[in-house]
Design a protein around this nucleic acid. Structure first.
Ligand code: FES
Ligand code: FES
Lengths: 145, 145
DNA sequence: ATAAATAAAGACAAAACTATCTTTAATTAT
DNA sequence: ATAATTAAAGATAGTTTTGTCTTTATTTAT
């Protein structure tokens, strides 16, 4: 469904939203361990989400690390897909036709479109915060290494 | 959702099922043109679906080409994903956890599982033939170059 | 000021994916 | 038999993805 990079981005962002605060930031070390992802690769991903997109906030130096502002937590999870350049799946033809339309539907279109719509709905209507709070509420995991 | 190779495999197989017969086989040339895919790459893919999996039938030489037996046409489309080694998406955790389970659910699990179930249902319950006949029935396209 | 801690930036490498081209084998038509 | 046609097989190459390592910049604590 998504690239490894996007999977790590989603896991990391949700984890940071749940555990990090401006007072107690999370280091790349902690994050990579928590979500079971390669540290340097994850660093690159967080860098992108910080620099270009301001989805994640970061501070360098001692007691530095990553956290999310309240505003960021309220963004739809789709924003992460967007930042990672991996939201194509929410729009694209399941058979890879250059465009998906009612005018030129592929053989699977009529059956597939409702599934894709639900998927899009999930990423558009639910915020980062909502999934972060899932972890808090119940017995929910962000890794299972 | 799927790799390019799998997209081509799905399009090609559905197209061959609709247009090819044992009497009038389809050449790789025709197929690649019809589904708008790179010829040699598509050849490799059809080769795999022919050799290892016997989903597609082929004959070499003049008037040779590809077609599907009636039996093959009745296989679920999932068989193509299986042959391409690309059916992970039907089972896998949306966040990429090593396993998806009710016992160790990720933060998106409860919302995502029904979507994935519908996707799997689509590929398991519908046959190649059913999608091939979509092309025949209405105004349905297998390319839109 | 200096040292320590931490993210940012950049260079590099391995693996997977996508694609092309050439040669070989099989089949058919003449 | 021979030539023509077609898929099979194999070699190769480009691109993208995934991942690691090193150096630099920034911030904090002493
Ligand atoms: S055209 Fe294929 S999903 Fe719409
Ligand atoms: S654990 Fe993530 S979808 Fe089930």
């Amino acid at each position: 469904m998504f690239s490894k990079a996007t999977e790590y981005a989603l896991r990391a962002t949700i984890f940071i939203a749940q555990k990090g605060t401006e007072e107690k930031k999370l280091s790349i070390e902690e994050i990579a361990k928590a979500i079971d992802s390669p540290k340097s690769f994850t660093a690159k991903i967080l860098q992108a989400l910080t620099k270009d997109n301001h989805i994640i906030s970061s501070v360098r130096g001692p007691n530095g690390g990553f956290y999310l502002t309240e505003k960021s937590k309220q963004l739809p999870v789709r924003i992460i897909l967007q930042a990672m350049g991996d939201e194509e799946v929410l729009e694209k033809c399941v058979l890879g036709l250059k465009q998906c339309s009612e005018l030129q539907p592929c053989p699977m279109h009529s059956q597939y479109k409702s599934i894709r719509k639900q998927l899009k709905e999930l990423f558009v209507t639910k915020s980062i915060k909502q999934f972060a709070s899932e972890i808090k509420d119940g017995v929910i995991f962000i890794n299972n290494s």
